[in-house]
Design a binder for these strands. Structure first.
Length: 1002
RNA sequence: GCGCACGUGGCGUAAUUGGUAGCCGCGCCAGACUUAGGAUCUGGUCCGUGAGGGUGGGGGUUCGAGUCCCUUCGUGCGUACCA
């Protein structure tokens, strides 16, 4: 019987589904193991071969752990809220729910075909109201919490309110808005409800706050920092600008230190942890206040009044040691003191500058970081130690959102201040020796302090300490930690997301009660903002109001909301009374292995850690981190095929033809497309002139002439001829039209597009049309998408699974290329043959030979080690070696083949199940215990010793394994080959590494 | 600029702690069986006729380096005025 993968695979997929083979049990004697894939957004394009890479790896681990006696949780679901479905809805009017459901159906069909061992009874969809009820519930907990820095965790807001009622806020040590004023208990009680609400808002972890946000006009929504790449939106690539808006946000900044510390406990890749560390961006420094010296003309009052209105500019610096090098202050254009610092004569210039700086899009700002702009305010501050007057400038190199939005500029020792100072001719004061300030600033943190009063002569490190001390003693400022990590904007002005469970009464936001959840997404007539710029939810019917009266929040939650806790829901996916039963979260604990793309490094993976810590603070779960071990699978890029299209124009052939003759030229539109094969393109594409290049041009011109004649025959009244524009465009060709060796199927290509029907081709000498290739992202628009379905159709899913793993290390990115797939497929056929060697199923019950047992146990050992270190590509080669050896030995013995099948079943489950059944087993192979490997079978009687001279191996000696090192040395020294290579000399030293190698120093 | 990976045959890759570099697969070459093959099977395949050379280049540590250290070049990814 032939290896009929199609039948085998569909049979077993049906069997698994019917018997719920992979359903996880909540509890039991077995140890638990939780393997999770980052769940997909179900896009309209379906899965391509890159998507399953990580799923295959995690499935191998899941199946392996089941064999090893673990109770495995291996779920899958969909991150089903998101922009593409909504964009599609805007274009077509189709409800995103329908689009999403259709896409999910396609995904599911594709996933099932690959034979994953998911427990589908636990599937979650973030857009399902039963799911997002709990996303909303978590939001409410975040709203009803504040971050107590003293206990270093989130606490319920009621503890804060009772503190306000007894002591006011003077003793409160919270992560909150800087702008909060202090008040007493009496004052608190006297505040109106609105005032109290506003104050509490400054403390809540989910809060409504005014902040500069990334506004994307084309998408009509704000975006989080991690959704913006290079100043444009990550999805769609639309420009993003900064805008001051009132927005729901998450006080993730409160967790910055814990998010940083937690990294040390995680078994994640260094690059991923490093990316998070950079994103969190901790820096230790000091805050420092500079007294503003009021310009007399600013104040229309007496000197007395002048003193009263004085205020300070607070800066943040990590280099307090360079305090004597400050020659100016720079504040951000958005700084709150801009207006009050600006003198009358500078007013016009400052206003113009600020307006211009604010209107610049994020992209423009990033694009010309080298362009230095700024303006003088006219005001001065006093140097805290020298008392000298220091000018205050405005510059957009200072970011409003970081530190205090103001810096003390030390041009001698900070490259940005240096460029600014050079550009505006401001003084540069050297305070640390070691650099050449004519050329550049000296930013290094080493050297001796000069020009620095009490710091003179000190090393930078010591100067930092002393300066810091002095600043604190004189109460000019204090030590401060700063994090680059900004609070995360949580509102999106979009339709297809979780409604934020908030309503407004008298302009005060209130959250819904738990029993009022879920707040279901209302129907709208259009998925666009309203005329006055309100989000789409404002289009909901007038009955969509809280208690029929109060407006709901019109923003929805961002994409990362649902994915920030889904790993918990899988533990208890159908619970209607709690997001997940504590007993179950305690049982399943952390994800043991999490696999997904590295693009989530600073988004999802940071937010999910944040929510996990938050839920722990409130006592809902007992774990601090969502995933113990994480692997980033590499991206599979597409291999695009390119055809080379010649560009022709039409020109006049003679003076008689010239424009004055008023004869019409041949129509450019009717020129048939002309494609040249790769070698011609390559010849043409050479930088310098070569004979080859000229030949290519001649050939192209020649075909131009032929086409000219054809066109002239069609249009006898018109004049002109085709001329080669000396340019050839590369166009993407559907990879399905190209066969091995990049040969284009010309006939299919002509039928591909109406416009190519009449195409001309300049072929290779052998008559083929050869395409070019390029590695690009796999995408519909590049016609380079290869779906897993294509591969499964041709070779079967087991081959697909093995081949994706065989491609190379999991973490590595690589282009998709089916060159080696026949080898992997051949391996499965060879395996099949071990059982069906004679044409019918035949397995012997004979005792295996020593050699066969060695092959088997060597394989068990290697496979076990490979899986434990997630090295799947090497396991495939080890299986191949094993099957090759067994084939050579003509081994069809049950005692060898049975354990081998179990080892293979995580990788190629369908064929393993089928052969397992043929061997007479009634139960699925999936829980058969993984074979133990026995060292005894691997022990060799002899060792092949390489004998080397000065590290170069000259010959090998087969010696008994029982020999000791000195015995080996004696035998080697007595060997005639040794004396030949020694050539009569005495070796200086002989090294014998037992059972490894012999080396002689001559 | 900064951070993190990574450079090995024609190609994808292997070599867990320093111990015979090139396993496995593709491709290629030769042969067998076939009307035929993008089927199957067998043998060969780092370069060099050979001594020998060889893991991007240079240097070092070591009896011994693809592996460790320094330096340099190149590629990929992330990030970017974070004071």
């Amino acid at each position: 019987m032939e290896y009929n993968f199609k039948e085998i695979e569909s049979n077993w997929q049906a069997y698994w589904a019917k018997h719920k083979t992979f359903a996880a049990k909540d509890g039991g004697d077995k140890p638990k193991y939780y393997v999770l894939d980052m769940f997909p957004y179900p896009s309209g394009a379906g899965l391509h071969v890159g998507h399953p890479l990580g799923y295959i790896a995690s499935d191998i681990v899941a199946r392996y752990k089941r064999h090893k006696g673990f109770n495995v949780l291996h779920p899958m679901g969909y991150d089903s809220f998101g922009l593409p479905a909504e964009q599609y809805a805007i274009q077509t009017g189709q409800h995103p729910k329908i689009t999403t459901e259709n896409n999910i159906a396609v995904y599911r069909r594709q996933l099932d075909k690959i034979g994953f061992s998911f427990d589908w009874d636990r599937e979650v969809r973030t857009s399902n109201p039963e799911y997002y009820k709990w996303t909303q519930w978590i939001f409410i907990q975040l709203f009803n919490s504040w971050y107590n820095k003293s206990s270093d965790k989130a606490e319920t807001i009621s503890t804060l309110i009772s503190e306000f009622e007894t002591n006011g806020n003077s003793k409160v040590n919270a992560a909150c808005e800087e702008s909060v004023q202090s008040f007493t208990a009496a004052q608190w009680k006297a505040f109106t409800e609105k005032e109290q609400s506003d104050i509490l808002m400054a403390y809540r972890i989910a809060y409504l706050g005014e902040a500069y946000v990334n506004w994307c006009p084309q998408l009509g929504t704000v975006l989080a920092n991690d959704e913006v790449k290079d100043g444009v939106s990550e999805r769609g690539g639309y420009p993003v600008e900064r805008k001051l808006m009132k927005q729901w946000s998450m006080r993730i900044n409160a967790y910055a230190q814990r998010l940083l510390d937690g990294l040390d406990t995680l078994d994640w890749t260094d690059s991923l942890k490093e990316a998070q560390r950079n994103w969190i961006g901790k820096s230790e420094g000091t805050s420092l206040r500079f007294k503003v010296i009021r310009h007399p003309e600013l104040v229309s009052g007496s000197q007395e009044m002048l003193k009263q209105v004085q205020h300070d500019i607070e800066v943040f610096t990590t280099r307090p040691d360079t305090i004597f090098g400050v020659s100016f202050l720079t504040i951000a254009p958005e700084h709150e003191l801009v207006e009050s610092l600006t003198t009358a004569e500078n007013k016009a210039a400052v206003e113009a500058y600020v307006t211009q700086a604010k209107n610049r899009s994020e992209r423009e700002r990033q694009a010309d970081v080298t362009k230095i702009t700024g303006v003088f305010t006219g005001s001065y501050v006093e140097h805290p130690f020298t008392g000298k007057q220091i000018p205050v400038w405005i510059g957009d190199y200072v970011l409003a959102g970081y530190g205090t939005g103001a810096v003390m500029a030390v041009p001698a020792h900070d490259s940005r201040d240096y460029s600014f100072a050079k550009h505006f001719g401001l003084p540069i004061i050297e305070v640390v020796k070691g650099g050449d300030l004519e050329k550049e600033s000296y930013d290094a943190k080493e050297g001796i302090l000069i020009n620095s009063d009490f710091l003179n002569g000190l090393q930078v490190k010591d100067a930092m300490k002393l300066a810091m001390q002095e600043i604190e003693i004189q109460r000019l400022g204090k030590k401060k930690l700063n994090f680059r990590l900004r609070d995360a904007v949580f509102g999106r002005q979009r339709y297809w997301g979780e409604p934020i469970p908030v309503y407004y009464k008298n302009d005060i936001p209130y959250v819904l009660a738990e029993n009022e959840l879920p707040l279901v997404l209302p129907e709208v007539d259009k998925y666009l903002p309203t005329e006055d710029g309100e989000p789409p939810l404002a289009r909901a019917s007038s009955s969509w109001k809280y208690k029929g009266e109060f407006d709901y929040e019109h923003s929805t939650m961002p994409g990362w909301a649902g994915s920030s806790w889904y790993f918990l829901r899988y533990m208890d996916p159908h619970n209607g009374s709690v997001f997940a039963d504590k007993k179950l979260t305690d049982y399943w604990q952390q994800v043991d292995l999490y696999i997904g793309g590295s693009e989530h490094a600073t988004g999802h993976l940071l937010y999910v850690r944040f929510w996990t810590k938050f839920l722990k603070d409130l006592g809902y779960i007992d774990i601090d981190e969502p995933a113990k071990k994480l692997i980033n699978q590499g991206m599979i890029q597409g291999l695009s095929s390119k055809a080379f299209r010649v560009s022709f124009g039409v020109s006049h052939t003679s003076i008689a033809d010239s424009p004055d003759s008023k004869k019409e030229l041949l129509p450019v539109k009717e020129i048939p497309p002309v494609f040249v094969s790769k070698s011609l393109f390559d010849s043409f594409n050479k930088e310098e002139w070569t004979a080859d290049r000229q030949m290519a041009i001649d050939k192209i011109s020649e075909i131009g002439n032929i086409i000219t004649k054809q066109l002239q025959a069609l249009h006898p009244d018109k004049v002109g001829k085709l001329s080669f524009n000396e340019s050839i465009f590369q166009i993407n060709v559907d990879v399905n039209l190209v066969s091995k060796g990049n040969i284009l199927n010309v006939e299919s290509f002509k039928n591909w597009r109406e416009e190519y029907k009449s195409a001309h081709f300049l072929l290779e000498e052998n008559g083929d049309y050869i395409c070019g290739t390029e590695v690009e992202k796999m995408s519909k628009s590049k016609y380079n998408v290869v779906t897993p379905d294509d591969i499964a159709e041709k070779f079967g899913s087991d081959t697909l699974r093995l081949y994706e793993m065989f491609l190379g290390p999991l973490e590595q990115s690589k282009p998709w290329n089916t060159n080696g797939i026949t080898g992997v497929h051949g391996f499965l056929k060879k395996l099949w043959k071990l059982f069906y060697g004679t044409g019918t199923f035949a397995v012997s019950d004979d005792e295996p030979t020593k050699g066969e047992l060695k092959t088997l146990h060597k394989t068990i050992k290697k496979i076990t080690e490979d899986i434990e270190r997630f090295s799947f590509n090497t396991s495939i080669s080890n299986f191949m070696i094993c099957v090759n050896e067994l084939t050579d030995a003509k081994c069809n013995k049950r005692a060898v083949l049975e354990p081998l099948l179990i080892c293979l079943s995580p990788y190629a489950p369908h064929i393993a199940e089928e052969l397992w059944k043929q061997l007479g087993h009634a139960e699925s192979i999936s829980t058969a215990p993984f074979p133990d490997f026995n060292e005894a079978y691997l022990v060799d009687d002899s060792v092949n010793y390489p004998v080397s001279f000065n590290g170069k191996v000259k010959f090998t000696l087969e010696l008994a394994a029982t020999l000791t090192a000195p015995e080996v040395e004696a035998i080697v020294m007595a060997n005639e080959q040794t004396s030949k290579f020694l050539d009569g000399k005495q070796p200086k030293k002989v090294i014998v590494v037992h059972k490894k190698i012999v080396n002689m120093v001559v």
